[in-house]
């Protein structure tokens, strides 16, 4: 930070590449330099670390403690770290009507939503792989569903799918001869499928950007060699492109699964969890605001974390060997 440290700074960085072997005579200065560097580093990073610890890590740990206490919004004053611990909330959550259905709905929603968004992203990336006029603009348009505010697109979909005055039902009856308008979001036979399609539409650009970047970074020689050898388009995709994309697809699938499994906004805004679309996060919200039961909500939220950790743990256990091969 002061002038006197500067010679050390200049000497240390390019002059002595192996950091463990300082030149004779410069050692005390480099040591002091390193200490001041460490001090500056810690000073610059600590505000961020403090925020993360206070607003993310501490609440998470506290949430685990709340899950084992009997606390409601009304008797909030008693809430603390020390209290009477019991498994009552966990038992209540598991015995709450529809517990299993909600877990199964959440799993169906996240597995199919993830598969849908990654598949659509892959198709889009393959279609936009080669250059053509206006590709940059098309690529930008592809990202619209992902960047637009969630509430706005949810309201838009509800308007489009409205049984009475919706665009889709109007043309469905006009063009495809639907007898009755379909209540896409209110009918329990279509609601879950509709929110899954929404999720795929909303999130495919995320997979699309990453897969397109990976496709464009791919060296062309291998594919060209296969082409010369007579491999057709589909064979080149199956044997040359897809194997190179698989690591990216795997990472995208895990990320999207985690985020879809815990997502709240989509379902809450489209159906409020009605018509057989209630997922765990909507239930957490209802326990918290509807019933005002903090303990129950915490226990239900903890269930999300536990299921997620188990599923992701299983995934990494099965792919650990393959991961090593790639590295």
């Amino acid at each position: 930070m002061t002038m006197s440290e500067l010679p050390g700074a200049v000497g240390a960085a390019p002059g002595s590449p192996p950091p463990g072997v300082p030149r004779k005579g410069t050692r005390p200065r480099v040591g002091a330099m390193r200490r001041s560097e460490a001090r500056t580093g810690i000073a610059l990073i600590s505000p961020t670390v403090v925020i993360v610890l206070v607003v993310v890590i501490a609440p998470l740990l506290w949430s685990f403690s709340l899950a084992f206490q009997r606390i409601r919004l009304i008797n909030l004053r008693d809430a603390g770290i020390i209290g009477e611990y019991s498994f009552d909330n966990i038992i209540a959550v598991v015995n709450y009507p529809g517990f299993l259905e909600v877990v199964l709905t959440t799993l169906t929603y996240s597995v199919l939503g993830t598969a849908g968004s990654v598949t659509l992203g892959l198709i889009a990336a393959l279609a936009l792989r080669r250059t053509f006029r206006g590709r940059g603009l098309v690529r930008t348009f592809m990202l619209l569903p992902y960047v637009a505010p969630m509430v706005a697109v949810a309201m838009l979909w509800r308007t489009l799918l409205d049984p009475q005055f919706g665009f889709i039902n109007h043309w469905g009856q006009e063009l495809f001869g639907w007898d009755d308008p379909i209540g896409f979001l209110s009918n329990s036979s279509t609601a879950l499928a509709t929110v899954i399609v929404f999720e795929a539409w909303r999130q495919f650009p995320f997979a699309f950007i990453f897969l397109l970047a990976r496709l464009q970074a791919m060296p062309g020689e291998l594919e060209e060699a296969a082409r010369v050898d007579g491999a057709t388009v589909s064979q080149r995709f199956r044997h040359i492109i897809l194997p190179q994309l698989l690591p990216t697809i795997a990472v995208l699938a895990v990320l999207r699964f985690i985020w879809t499994f815990t997502s709240f906004d989509e379902i809450y805004l489209l159906t409020r969890g009605g018509a057989g679309t209630e997922v765990i996060s909507v239930r957490v919200f209802d326990f918290l605001t509807g019933r005002g039961d903090i303990g129950l909500a915490s226990a239900q939220a903890m269930m999300i974390a536990v299921i997620l950790v188990v599923l992701v743990g299983i995934y990494f256990k099965f792919t650990a060997k393959r991961q090593q091969d790639f590295q």
């Binding site: 949430s63 606390i71 957490v284 999300i304």
Partner: peptide, 12 residues
């Protein structure tokens, strides 16, 4: 980190 897990403790 999913924000729904932080919703309850931060709200409280």
């Amino acid at each position: 980190f999913p924000s729904i897990l932080l919703a309850v403790p931060l709200f409280v």
